[in-house]
Computed example of a mutant assay.
Amino acid sequence: MPIKARTKFVLLLIATMTFCVSCSKDENDDDEVNSADVAASADEYVRSGTLLTTAESQLDGDITFKFISVSVNDALILRETSGKLEVANPFAFDYETNTMITGEIEASNGTESEVLSLQIDVNDIDDIGYFLKTPESKAAYEAASLGEWIQIQEDEYKTLRSTITEVSLVGSNDNQYDESIQYAQNNDSYVYDNATVVNEGNGIPQNNFVFAFKYYSERNNVAQSKVKVSAAELTEGHEDIGSNLPIHNTGEHFFVLKGNDISSENGYLSMYTEKGLVTGIRGNGIHFFISGDAKDIGRNFNASGEICIYQGLSTPIKQWD
């Protein structure tokens, strides 16, 4: 090959190699989201004892590992001699509270030490679906369409109330609800058929999403009950939220709403019932009512000292798909 031609070929080859290395580096930089020395990701509420990753050190000899700092107390276990990093507390992995867990780890061989940065990314999941533990409830929730109410168990309602972040009770407080049920079960109470009602107390906080509901019915084969929410006013502008409640019979019933994305601006929780909604005279509250499935209830008819036996759960943070 002539010298000039060979020189051109070598220069072209060097330029091509330089270009390819540069491309590879840029691509790696784009993909490298978590650059911590000890890095991993985990779903919310990952099981205790789950191995997340293993810390590694460049030091020679037998290495021991210990935490210098961790952003979330009791979230992680670090095995001193192996460097294995495991889940300690599943509830520390709550995306709505901690999108990541960070910290520093010291690695030491007895004479030398190095500091390793730590970052565990928490993956967001559907909290409601996770906390429904009975097979029937979980299957119904997974099969449901967005905006559909499904019936759940009492203990599942209580679990959602205690584990979903920043829950507010709406429609009635516990004393009103519990005392009213006790009275209704032992005395004659008024029962609404074909009516829309709203309790005055326990409004929905600013920009909250209603996601669960319970109430007490005195009728069987109830097929046309609806949960409603007003935008701001107590007795005006009540719109259906979600589908009709599933068909149910007499007694206390618990429901959860899939995928609610409609928030209320300091509004109120209400309901329409085809039949069977009970009032309690020991509620120390007041409710307004009107015949039929109505958007505007008005203030012409009210019952002082009584509430209707229903309650909802709301939160300002969407913790579901």
Rank of each mutant, 00 (worst) to 15 (best):
Y190D: 10
Y192S: 11
D193F: 12
N199H: 07
G203S: 09
I204H: 01
F211E: 02
K214E: 14
S217Q: 11
E218N: 13
A223P: 00
K226P: 00
V227M: 07
S230E: 08
A231T: 06
A232S: 14
T235Y: 12
E239K: 05
G242C: 07
N244E: 15
L245D: 05
I247Q: 15
H248A: 11
G251W: 13
H253S: 11
L257H: 05
G259L: 06
D261F: 02
I262T: 13
S263T: 09
N266I: 03
Y268R: 03
L269H: 08
S270W: 07
M271P: 08
Y272H: 14
Y272L: 09
T273E: 05
E274C: 01
G276D: 08
V278M: 10
T279A: 12
T279H: 07
G280K: 10
I281H: 07
I281V: 09
I286Y: 02
F289T: 13
S291E: 15
G292S: 13
G292P: 07
G292T: 10
A294I: 04
G298R: 09
F301N: 12
F301H: 08
N302I: 00
N302L: 14
N302H: 10
A303N: 09
S304V: 13
G305V: 03
G305T: 04
C308A: 15
C308M: 14
Y310P: 07
Q311V: 11
G312F: 02
L313E: 01
